[in-house]
């Protein structure tokens, strides 16, 4: 039964992808890419990856679509050139050859779902066995993400941080960009119903974000998903009430501090472990018992992730919005 659902979603994925690439209307392409993200999130859920599904839904279908739409507000939404025929032929050949190579190799891969495949025999069972012992938390994904591979996650936070300062550096400070124009942007003030409903929803979204943040050790979720949710709530506020209002609630200065302090909090936990005699990011030394230390460490670094992600996503939104109203 699940297999049929799987095949159905896979088919939908391919169809959506084809439509995305072939549509000449960019708006359609972007909306289809949002649908694609939701479909692939459903597929992740079927494949037992709840955390990934939550992230993909929040990021791919939510934030990414908002960013694309913000950028499209500035451009022609019609694709005018079809491209050079020669390039299309060359890319078709490249693509076809690569596909043949991959499909050829799949025949020698372990079968889908085979528990005897090497990946289920080495390393991964150790994690499943040791997360309850080392950290005593139910969500194994959070345990690996926060501690065993915490250094990767540190890198991930800095990737987000880089994107934040990158967009600011490329598009310029939103406040300065906004000074050049009259404040005609009032959000959706004249739309009564969306405004009322939206305002009612914002507290719930933030509440859910906080739940995802602090319940990440027990259920799917964590700093990144929570950050995306809280940022979505603030972005919704900005859409309803206008960016000026949103910038009054959380000024740019605060956003700068959020971006930097989240990354520093994460790094700081690592350095604290270093100073207390452990290796970098070795949370075991942070508290009286190693298990408590691990739990504190994961809690703190997840907060760092949440802070940075929230700050960066809101900043990126403001940076785009300030441009598109020029």
């Amino acid at each position: 039964m699940v297999e049929i659902l799987n095949i159905f979603i896979m088919l939908m994925l391919v169809i959506t992808a084809l439509a995305m690439v072939s549509s000449r209307h960019l708006f359609v392409t972007v909306m289809l890419s949002g649908i694609f993200s939701l479909l692939i999130a459903a597929s992740f859920l079927l494949l037992d990856a709840a955390d990934v599904a939550l992230t993909e839904a929040a990021v791919g279908a939510g934030i990414s679509t908002v960013l694309f739409l913000g950028a499209l507000a500035l451009m022609d939404v019609e694709e005018t050139t079809r491209g050079v025929r020669r390039i299309r032929m060359v890319s078709l050949i490249v693509v076809a050859v690569t596909t043949i190579f991959i499909v050829h190799a799949t025949f020698y891969m372990p079968a889908f779902g085979d528990i005897n495949a090497p990946i289920h025999q080495h390393v991964a069972p150790w994690y499943i066995q040791h997360v309850p012992i080392h950290m005593d938390i139910p969500n194994i994904v959070t345990g690996i993400l926060g501690s065993y591979r915490g250094y990767d996650t540190l890198g991930e936070v800095f990737v987000v941080f880089t994107a934040g300062i990158g967009v600011l550096s490329i598009l310029g400070d939103p406040i300065k960009n906004r000074q050049h124009r009259p404040a005609h942007n009032r959000g959706l003030r004249h739309y009564l119903i969306p405004r009322l409903v939206g305002r009612m929803l914002i507290p719930f979204i933030i509440l859910f974000g906080l739940y995802v943040q602090f319940h990440g050790e027990y259920s799917p979720g964590g700093g990144f998903q929570a950050g995306a949710l809280v940022a979505a709530a603030i972005i919704l506020y900005a859409l309803l009430e206008g960016e000026d209002k949103a910038l009054q609630v959380i000024p740019m200065r605060v956003l700068y501090i959020m971006m930097a302090s989240g990354a520093l909090l994460y790094g700081g936990v690592g350095v604290a472990a270093l100073l207390m005699g452990g290796n970098f990011l070795d949370y075991s030394v942070l508290a009286s018992t190693p298990v408590a230390g691990q739990q504190w460490g994961i809690l703190l670094i997840e907060m760092g992730v949440g802070l940075t992600v929230t700050g960066v996503l809101i900043t990126i939104f403001h940076a785009f919005a300030a441009r598109s109203n020029l």
């Binding site: 955390d51 390393v123 991964a124 194994i140 994904v141 991930e156 987000v160």
Partner: peptide, 16 residues
């Protein structure tokens, strides 16, 4: 349980 490690890697990759 399904393998948690690829999920961790992809969480990072989605963010990237």
């Amino acid at each position: 349980f399904s393998n948690p490690l690829p999920q961790v890697l992809i969480l990072t990759a989605i963010v990237v």
